[in-house]
Amino acid sequence: MFSTNILYNKLLLILSCYLIIVSGDDDFHWSDCGGQTVRFNRLDFQPKPLILSKTKEIFVTGDFSIIEDLPTNVELIIVLNKTLHYQDEDSYNITIPCLDGTFGSCTIKLCDIFDTWLNDIICPFLKKNNRPCSCPIKAGNFSLENSRITVPFERFKGFLAQMASGDYNAKIMINNLDHFGPGENLLACLLLHARLAEN
């Protein structure tokens, strides 16, 4: 059994890896790609660009709306790709596999996160937005304003930093497993593209 501190540090590492995907200007763009229930309105952070050798903290700002209460039988699907370039001409994407059930291209039951150590982040966020820390997540407007996250980028050095830097794309979807009609099961969809710099 991991201690609370180890689990919290692990969560920060995983969360910061996802925030790597959210960078700035030509290095960053995002779009709401559909869904019947969730609308993404704003997403940004400082500082930009994210540089492995320099960035120690990220300040996240964003807001989104949940039009109606999310059902209990909902899954979060994350598809994370990295673009590899060959001889400055050809490029191709590789899908990053699901690592430890939480980072990479993973499928997670949304309500399950309330029974795990991810609760350390989700509950404070919901309470800050005057929502109960329970599943299903209730409808309403949610926001973050310069919320600080310490990122363990100092772990990315040398060859590891070279491997981690580059262009990333992610597609994050929330699906209702109780509906099977065309488009009926997609509750939310978010597309992200960004570049992470080594130096």
Rank of each mutant, 00 (worst) to 15 (best):
N5V: 14
N5S: 10
N5L: 11
L7R: 15
L7M: 13
Y8D: 12
Y8H: 08
N9T: 06
N9F: 11
N9R: 13
L11W: 07
L12W: 07
L12E: 07
L12Y: 02
L13P: 00
L13W: 12
L13C: 08
L13V: 04
L13I: 09
I14N: 14
I14M: 10
S16L: 15
S16T: 15
S16M: 12
C17S: 13
C17A: 09
L19Y: 15
L19E: 11
I20R: 14
I21H: 10
V22R: 12
S23L: 09
S23T: 11
G24T: 01
G24N: 14
D25Q: 11
D26P: 15
D27K: 08
F28M: 10
F28K: 07
H29I: 10
H29V: 08
H29E: 13
W30H: 12
W30R: 13
S31G: 13
S31L: 05
S31V: 05
D32R: 01
G34M: 10
G35Q: 07
T37P: 00
V38Y: 08
F40W: 12
R42H: 05
R42M: 01
R42A: 03
L43N: 06
L43T: 05
L43E: 04
L43W: 05
D44T: 01
Q46C: 06
Q46S: 12
P47M: 02
K48M: 08
K48Q: 09
P49S: 05
P49H: 01
I51C: 10
L52N: 04
S53L: 04
T55L: 07
I58V: 15
F59G: 03
F59L: 14
V60C: 02
V60N: 00
V60L: 03
